[in-house]
Amino acid sequence: MIAIQDNTMNDTVNQAVTHSSRLEQCFATLKQQNRPALVSYLTAGDPDADASRRLLHGLPEAGVDIIELGMPFSDPMADGPAIQKAALRALESGQTQAKTLEMVRRFREENSSTPIVLMGYYNPIFCYGVERFLTDAANAGVDGLIVVDLPPEHDEELCQPAARHGIDFIRLATPTTDARRLPKVLANASGFIYYVSVAGVTGGSAPTPERLESSVAQLREHTDLPIAVGFGIRTAEQAATIGRFSDAVVVGSALVDCIEHAASADDAVEQVHGLVSELAESVRACRQ
């Protein structure tokens, strides 16, 4: 009797929380709580399949609001050394697109509320087959995609097909995105806008908060979508400063560094979740 009730409840939840709305719900809830989202980036399969699964499953409890999961690529041109190495570790441990989607599917079996955004480069998706990928991603419970090397000029490749599958396409805005270009960047954007805080690769140096705040304010004049800020945010203090004026703070290279420097897989899991807890605490308190 109880089991049946549980199933019914789960079905209701799954119906109510459709894929494209998990992100909306998340940002709506956080707005009520007057705090920014903590977004974590980890590469799927880093350092190996089992540790990566444990890392992923522990993120919500450690305080992550939105999960970015990297699809490893052999030639990550927009990433700095930390995430390049993470991709290589994952590929060497046998990670594939299919395994990444399977990771999401298994995560969804126990978590139906934390949004998952897959991040990476176009080629592994293109080779998997765009329609097949989107079908499998939607079924697995993927909420959004960030594909670094697909500017709006190529929206027909993946952005528009993703919308038809109910998957958000999160657009990157950068310090080089001027007023003339911004409308094009925002045109088919959904989910949230990812503001790349510096012109450069991931893991680089962080910009001054003053400059960032005015950039985010300018962006807000043109969009109602939530604005996440990433690239170069490594510490709880930085996250808190940026979280005061942005809707989400993305931390990636700092977490991936923990995996690189960990003594063992267990140590990696412990360190990553430890840093996430620290960041989460800071982000939760930043507007008080």
């Binding site: 041109m77 090397d149 190529h154 080089t176």
Partner: peptide, 22 residues
Amino acid sequence: ANGLFGSFGGRFVAETLMPLIL
């Protein structure tokens, strides 16, 4: 105009580079 030779070519780069490439 989009830099395509049939289905080949294009501008598959990060947004940071797009204004410069244009």
